[in-house]
């Protein structure tokens, strides 16, 4: 074998290093990127939120503290994947691992003493956070939209009966009225941001829904209830909440309603909010605003991550 083959080989290996290193460097983020979150929470003891962000695998970031509007109204409960065991380990903790990045989470607990007492709802809404990392860097991060409201227990008019969800980004919830009410509107929060991301259908077919009463006495769950969630979204029972002629609708005490929800499976944002059911109590005339809670997190593949980075880095 000739010596020039050796040197040609060595040269190719060196180029392989340079090429791979350049590609690796081009994939590094200047700073962590927060994903979009649409969160609604009620103020209470230990109210916390988990935010998700992307960071370089090489030297991953760790959140030390967070300010909202310049005030430290949240405490960092943990940066990482939940459980405390992970925190003592020297291995970085992450939710998911990608080619060059980690998807990490940081859980923030609301510091109640900073919340002003007498304010109208929502008490606090924010779209950005100032996030400080353990390497002394900090970013002004867009995190989606977070709303914090005060809970009003007196106006609880609907009891949740049965709910089911599928991994196909679907959820069904059945509710029963505590007293006679009229519903004026069912709405999805964050209307500007979530247009097309969530679809909701409601069904007030008492004849059918009353069959579910059997379940209370340990009866069988009717087959249609479970079949419904497996069906294609447009074939499911109920009418979309956008149909304005649906409302107002009056329900007597102990009457049923079914709410079906469908989330855009291709979206990359985190949902933890409620579908708002607004109306009046028939007797007292008091208004209510009750929510059907939604928790739906996206599954993000490598391609989603690449697209999020291209969008968030390119858009800045």
């Amino acid at each position: 074998m000739k010596e020039r083959f050796l040197w040609a080989g060595v040269l190719i290996i060196v180029f392989s290093w340079i090429g791979n290193y350049a590609y690796f460097q081009s994939k590094q983020l200047d700073h962590p990127i927060f994903l979009d979150h649409f969160y609604e929470a009620t103020l209470g003891e230990g109210t916390s939120f988990t935010f998700y962000y992307l960071t370089n695998k090489q030297d991953p970031a760790v959140v030390t503290h967070v300010q909202i509007d310049g005030v430290e109204i949240v405490n960092v409960l943990n940066d990482g994947h939940g459980i405390g065991v992970w925190q003592n380990s020297s291995e970085p903790s992450f939710v998911q691992e990608y080619r060059h990045h980690y998807l990490k989470s940081v859980t923030l607990e609301l510091n109640e003493e900073f919340i002003p007492d007498n304010q109208t709802e929502p008490i606090l809404t924010f779209e950005t956070m100032d996030v400080f990392f353990n390497d002394q860097s900090s970013i002004h991060a867009d995190v989606g939209t977070v709303k914090i409201c005060r809970e009003d227990r007196n106006l609880h008019v609907l009891d949740s009966q049965m709910s089911s969800s599928s991994n196909q980004h679907r959820r069904e919830e059945t509710l029963v009225t505590r007293e006679a009410i009229s519903i004026d509107e069912i709405s999805i929060p964050f209307p500007e941001d979530l247009e097309g991301e969530v679809a909701v259908k409601v069904d007030f077919d008492q004849n059918r829904l009353k069959e579910l009463e059997k379940v209370r006495d340990n009866g069988e769950i009717p087959a249609w209830f479970e079949e419904n969630i497996e069906k294609e979204w447009n074939e499911t029972t109920g009418l979309p909440i956008e149909e304005k002629e649906l409302f107002p609708i009056t329900l007597n005490e102990n009457e049923w309603m079914q709410v079906g929800m469908y989330f855009n499976p291709d979206r990359t944002s985190y949902f933890e909010f409620g579908i708002h059911i607004k109306g009046k109590k028939s007797e007292s005339g008091h208004t209510f605003d009750q929510t059907v809670p939604i928790i739906d997190h996206p599954y993000l593949g490598q391609q989603d991550i690449d697209e999020i980075i291209a969008e968030k880095v390119g858009g800045q």
Binding site: I13, S16, G19, N20, Y23, R99
Partner: peptide, 23 residues
């Protein structure tokens, strides 16, 4: 000689690609 150099060349050539590989 040939087998060794060709094999080790490929192993060494591919090694830097690992920094850009999925886990």
């Amino acid at each position: 000689f040939k087998i060794y150099m060709v094999t080790m060349f490929f192993v060494t050539f591919l090694e830097p690609f690992s920094i850009n590989m999925t886990e």
